[in-house]
Write a protein that binds this DNA or RNA. Sequence first.
DNA 1: TCGTGTGAACGAATTCACAGCG
DNA 2: CGCTGTGAATTCGTTCACACGA
Lengths: 228, 228
Amino acid sequence: MSLQSLPGAVAKKEPVAEMRSAKISESAVRRLSLYLRLLQEADSLGQETISSEELADRAGTTAAQVRKDLSLFGSFGKRGLGYAVSELLQEIREILGLNRSWRVALVGAGKIGSALITYRNFRTRGFHIEAVFDTDPDKVGKRWGTQTILDDTEMGSVLAGKRIEIAVIAVPADAAQGVVDRVVASGVSAILNFAPVRLRVPKGVSLRNVDMVVEMEGLAFALTSTER
Amino acid sequence: MSLQSLPGAVAKKEPVAEMRSAKISESAVRRLSLYLRLLQEADSLGQETISSEELADRAGTTAAQVRKDLSLFGSFGKRGLGYAVSELLQEIREILGLNRSWRVALVGAGKIGSALITYRNFRTRGFHIEAVFDTDPDKVGKRWGTQTILDDTEMGSVLAGKRIEIAVIAVPADAAQGVVDRVVASGVSAILNFAPVRLRVPKGVSLRNVDMVVEMEGLAFALTSTER
DNA sequence: TCGTGTGAACGAATTCACAGCG
DNA sequence: CGCTGTGAATTCGTTCACACGA
């Protein structure tokens, strides 16, 4: 990609995007996403350099963990100094694939969908919702943010036509698997699922679940086992 | 607790709630929550018994994993047969602390809060939202579901007065830490956070984060590293 | 015989500790 | 001298494999 086009960047040790795909753990990726956010904060406050320890403190992890995570992708720091905030920022954006925008569709125009579509962080991070679907005839045709709600029956063709890459599933649990199957058939290979079900996806399709009940039950367990 | 007061329960091998608190991993708890949901489905379909393998298939894990998870809390199966659905169901409810209801407060009456308060699964699982707070004078006093939105300034006294156990934080990122500090000061010791920040909580307070941007960035990473 | 329960083996992720570079 | 980058040590979680009981 356009890395060597930056004349000042020649000293960089690893070309990042070309790294051998040594399987990176999901938790490492989560932390990178978190580091990115913290770096953006630091950057907007004018901070120029940051140590693994400071980043770790803010992220709630250890300095060694931060360095290990980053070392999976290259050597971005300066020994004795730390990391250049804006540079590391850019590296992580590159690693996560955030230097481009992503075409997202939202399936299910209910409350959760509504929360998502108005969520500013989404758009500013490059996730563009380019289609919204629902089955409810009362909703179809209504405007939602910048989008008009489309009928569920149009989903397949629209997803394919717009070359949607990520689908957000915000439909009732019993409808979710059906939606996923159709969405995958239309070429989508990443899914964020809000329905409280375990979805099956073919190999090669990435799936993340956001399950509020599971989280609440985890809290209930923690409270239960702490008491006494 | 009132365990040995149940005369019929003597044959049970492990008293569950009295187990040594051998630290249970968060992922194990997540899976238990998932098993519970699957068992409820099976139960409502009239299925009487289930093997670790069947449960594993539905949960997307392995039979050994299911057995290990359950064995952390006792021996609930019958060799050669599997598990009695309704019995295991009840055991897991007991383990997770779901045989009682939990007093929950929602802080932030925005879109996410709105999604939560209308979310049926919440109430049916025993999580009762007993107070809703917001700072916006236009919202305060309005009815939301069964609740009237209360002013943020009342939060401390109401949380303490109602003996709220779990707080759901659905406020903007820059307000979240302040809210958490006050919530904790009012005796809440479990928090579900929807704000995109890393919150600091004192030891003894449980915290779970739901961070949609992190999940989306994880998907972006997966798509980026798969392509080519 | 079948499927659980579990020690033992394995593998993954985190932490340690230090060599090496700026 | 300070802080990164990284092998080595360790901890944690998962999988294996089989003895045992219904």
